[in-house]
Design a protein around this nucleic acid. Structure first.
Lengths: 194, 194
DNA sequence: CAGTCTAACTAACGTTTGTTAGTTTCAAAA
DNA sequence: TTTTGAAACTAACAAACGTTAGTTAGACTG
């Protein structure tokens, strides 16, 4: 009973601390002994809860990745305009970063250290995500909601603009996630030129 | 004569190959033996040309960083509108990435592995750059060229949008750097909403 | 020709790496 | 009370790490 619950929570503690550590020092720059110290046990003891260092990375990347996938699917099926759908997605990205900044950072920066089998899987997942978002943009252009922009450029401009939130955002600045999402949406949707 | 020239070019070969390798595997994931193999000599032999692995990272980060600084200073003093200045900067970022993609990638992703002294220096350089660009945006808002957007958000949206070029751009797509800069400018300046 | 210098080499160093083996501790189940 | 099983520990492994030492080959300089 409580043992299995304890095991789960210790494993989750390892994953949480790993995300924090990987964000700070990178996957390659983080040692299992570093990580163990943060968790509060010996390095060898962690192997009672995880299979390998690689498994930690996989778990972080794919569990976050799946959340993005699910939300995009959710947004796609809502009866909103294409503008509203993209704005929802922007808000979700901001929310994810503010609530799971460490894990999102690992997804963004350390995915390339996945082993080759998982790397292929990860790239497929990412491609799928981009294709879905691209089709939203294309549809918005076709129905006149959007200007006839270059779809690839728009796609990556949006996704990259969202990445900075993880890289640059500091809670200390006192901006709420609603304001932040609104301001980013404003610029991407309407540009900065008067 | 030819010996000192040879030394310089071998050092530059090391730096070039290092940028390529770091981009692919990250600073922590790249070993000196890996690098030496790409250069075509033994790992120990590289120490005739460079002081340490850290020095390679420093040289790449700061030589690229200085180029960005210089160009921004150049753009600031030109007698153009604020829109034109920002568009020039966008074009320059695209050009840098297309011409020095490996080194730019190292600047973007591996700066955090600089040793603490150089890390402080690097952050100061980056802050300076951001402050200059922010003041361009502020001035543009004040003279009515730009909407009254949140300056920080605009700043980071622009800089992040430019980062994707390094991460996602593939020459194989056959887009010229002029077209690419124009399309990015179009979205950031005018948004995507019709 | 003798001397010097550069840039390569091989060998090795001390550390750190991820991981395994074997053992101990201690609480829950029987 | 005895048994069991999870989860911690210590100790150690082989490999890889950045780097240093010492040496050699060959090209310039005097």
């Amino acid at each position: 009973m409580s043992t299995s619950k304890l095991k789960i929570s210790k494993r989750e503690k390892i994953l949480t601390e790993a995300a924090k550590l990987f964000r700070e020092k990178g996957f390659g720059g983080s040692s299992m002994r570093d990580l163990a110290e943060k968790v509060g046990i010996e390095a060898a003891s962690m192997y009672n809860h995880i299979r390998s260092k690689d498994e930690i990375l996989e778990e972080i990347c794919f569990s976050v990745g799946r959340k993005y996938d699910e939300q995009l699917t959710e947004i796609e099926k809502q009866p909103n305009s294409f503008s509203e759908k993209i704005e929802s997605l922007i808000a979700f990205h901001v929310k994810m970063i503010i609530e799971n900044g460490d894990a999102v950072s690992v997804l963004n920066n350390d995915w390339k250290f996945l082993n080759s089998k998982k790397l292929i899987e990860f790239k497929a997942m990412r491609n799928e995500y981009e294709k879905h978002l691209a089709s939203l943009i294309t549809a918005g252009i076709e129905d006149g909601s959007f200007k006839p922009v270059n779809v690839s450029v728009a796609l990556f401009t949006i996704l990259s603009s969202l990445r900075w939130v993880e890289l640059w955002y500091k809670p200390s600045r006192g901006v709420t996630k609603e304001d932040l999402a609104k301001d980013i949406s404003a610029i991407l949707m309407n540009g900065i030129k008067a």
